[in-house]
């Protein structure tokens, strides 16, 4: 080989090395940019949380949970607000979870793939993106005036139920889709009907994913304010809904579903807009509680997903 060829090969190698180095630089730069973007988002959130916690946490006490709202900021509490939020969450869960899971299972396992199913699927995805206030307006016309349900916990629960329904349907379908087809075929091969296959195999195996979706949708619902204001959530309530249990027959009472309500975000908003700074502290404390509740719910969702992933092996 002549020296000329050798030299040109050497030049090529050098060239390639420079190229690689440049690419590594670009790679590094992108990594740093990504990290900065992440830090920016996280630090903003962290600053907000710390600010909220520093104002709100000293205000937290047992009385804050057991007192009704009051004109005296130091005596005011969130009893009616958290009971209202809790009652509405239960109503929402009771109507959205069975409907959502059933719809998801039907669309994934039973429905034949035709244009109608396609249209329904498209609509469900669209519904998930509709602003929540629209649901509130619809509920005001339909539940409050048409069905005469009034401005009650039932109306609020149904409204939020409709709001989170698309999320539950979509996550249910995704969870079911992760179950391998071999499981379905194995069940059929052993003579199971479609219902037995769904009930005994599909649902148990995908329940981790479904539960995750359910909890995340509920943690979205708990922070919703706009649709509840539209259906007529009140601002001052210093009494609790009727108790669900009675001393006499039939022991269970559904009177509470018809009761008026307020929820934590609304209570918080009312306190923020007061002139006295003491009420702003109350609002921050309510914010801390809402934040902790959402964090706990999301934490449970992650834990459930982790547990089910560990248990399932195929």
């Amino acid at each position: 080989m002549s020296t000329a060829v050798l030299q040109s090969e050497r030049a090529q190698v050098l060239d390639m090395r420079a190229n690689i180095r440049r690419r590594q630089w670009v790679d590094l730069a992108f990594g740093v940019a990504g990290l900065l973007a992440l830090l920016f988002a996280l630090l903003t959130l962290l600053a907000l949380i710390i600010d909220l916690a520093m104002t709100g946490v000293p205000r937290l006490s047992w009385e804050f949970f057991t007192n009704f709202p009051s004109r005296f900021p130091e005596r005011a509490g969130i009893l009616s607000a958290w009971v209202g939020s809790f009652a509405i969450m239960i109503t929402t869960a009771c109507c959205a979870i069975p409907l959502g899971i059933a719809a998801g299972v039907y669309l994934e396992e039973y429905a034949s793939k035709n244009w109608l199913t396609g249209l329904i699927e498209l609509n469900i995805i669209n519904l998930a993106g509709i602003p929540s206030i629209t649901f509130g307006l619809m509920a005001l016309g339909l539940f409050v005036y048409q069905f005469q349900l009034g401005q009650s916990i039932l109306t609020a629960g149904l409204t939020l139920g409709l709001l989170v329904l698309p999320i539950i349907i979509v996550t249910t379908r995704e969870a079911i889709r992760t179950v391998p087809n071999s499981i379905r075929e194995a069940a059929y091969a052993l003579g199971a009907s479609r219902w037995q296959m769904v009930w005994d195999h599909l649902l148990p195996y995908s329940s981790g994913g479904i539960l995750t979706g359910v909890i995340i949708s509920l943690s979205r619902a708990i922070g919703e304010t706009a649709p509840l204001i539209t259906v007529g959530a009140l601002t001052f309530i210093a009494f609790l809904p009727h108790p669900p249990v009675m001393a006499e027959f039939p022991f269970l009472s559904f009177q509470w579903l018809k009761d008026p309500f307020t929820v934590m975000p609304i209570q918080m908003f009312n306190w923020v807009s007061r002139p006295q700074p003491e009420f702003h502290v109350n609002a921050a404390a309510t914010g801390v509680i809402l934040l902790v509740m959402t964090l706990v719910m999301n934490g449970i969702a992650i834990w459930i997903r982790y547990r089910f992933r560990q248990r399932l092996k195929w």
Binding site: A233, T235, F236
Partner: peptide
């Protein structure tokens, strides 16, 4: 009105419920 509702309910010891909206 909130203050009135608060005082009134206290004085009636819960026999009457008052709701105030904005």
């Amino acid at each position: 009105t909130e203050a009135m509702a608060e005082e009134f309910q206290t004085s009636k010891k819960g026999a009457v419920r008052v709701t105030v909206g904005i």
